[in-house]
């Protein structure tokens, strides 16, 4: 089966996010006033696996070993089967 994982990596809650803060300030220059802006990165990973569970397990390992840094990041995996 072919799966697509959309992995979102963001700084843990409470951690300083200078990129988000800078974007918020720029939005304010444009006349918008959001309460907060937090930055995040998304990675799209396509992989073959026997089942959704196996695919998710692999993606989770990838996140822990490389894609996220567990000291500073939380991550969310959104997985779906594709043609």
């Amino acid at each position: 089966m072919l799966y697509l994982a959309e992995v979102t990596v963001k700084l843990k809650a409470g951690m300083l996010d200078p990129e988000g803060t800078t974007i918020k300030r720029a939005l304010e220059h444009l006349g918008y006033h959001p309460n907060s802006v937090r930055s995040a990165k998304e990675y799209l990973i396509e992989l073959e696996a026997e089942s959704a569970d196996k695919a998710r397990e692999q993606i989770d390992q990838m996140c822990q070993k490389l894609i996220a840094n567990p000291i500073i990041h939380d991550y969310i995996i959104d997985l779906r089967e594709i043609e």
Partner: peptide, 10 residues
């Protein structure tokens, strides 16, 4: 230990 993240003023 720890991590090096973006400077407080980026």
């Amino acid at each position: 230990e720890g991590a090096l993240t973006t400077n407080r003023y980026p």
